[in-house]
Amino acid sequence: MFTDVLPLRAILFQLLFIVLAIAIESIVLQKYLGIGQKTSIQYAATANLASPVVGWLIFFTVESSLPPSWRVQLIGYIFYDRINSPALLIGLAFSIFIGTFLLKVQTINWLDQILGIRKPSTVEVQDPIKFRGRTAHRQTFSELPNRALAVLLANAASFSAITFLIAVRTILPPTNY
């Protein structure tokens, strides 16, 4: 059976969120990592395209193995935008946040390997034989931009913006877009 019920709103929102996240995250990464504009956009674009793909794959796998009562709740949420336990939604959102953060760090590491970009952090510690003074070592360490932290901040910024948009959508009266 094929109906004219299309997931158009999901596609529209996802496109909007991806574009927004790429824009915000590239700015944050550029600022915290001190990298060029082009590299930061590459990082943000790749990470933000990879995470929804992985997210959907997890969704499809989990959805097909849910017990019927949970499945009905999920369908209800998708069709009517209503959920029985908001706590579950908050918990899910939080785990998605952690999940995307880890995924983005990993994606950026892989991207470095694939594109052959030299990481500033590894350049410094690659040579263990060379003697370094204690102070010198500490200094380089503190000066080094922490990539995970930068990605965490970028992720937090983009999630905040997306959450804000979702909140606006919830508060505003429904319009038929």
Binding site: M1, T3, L6, P7, L8, A10, I75, D81
Partner: peptide
């Protein structure tokens, strides 16, 4: 979504105006 509507056709009866996913 088509699968869900085959298994649970009555969901359509209440309309999807509020949905954030489907139209």
């Amino acid at each position: 979504v088509q699968d869900w509507l085959t298994e649970y056709p009555s969901f359509r009866a209440q309309g999807f105006e509020q949905s954030a996913f489907v139209r």
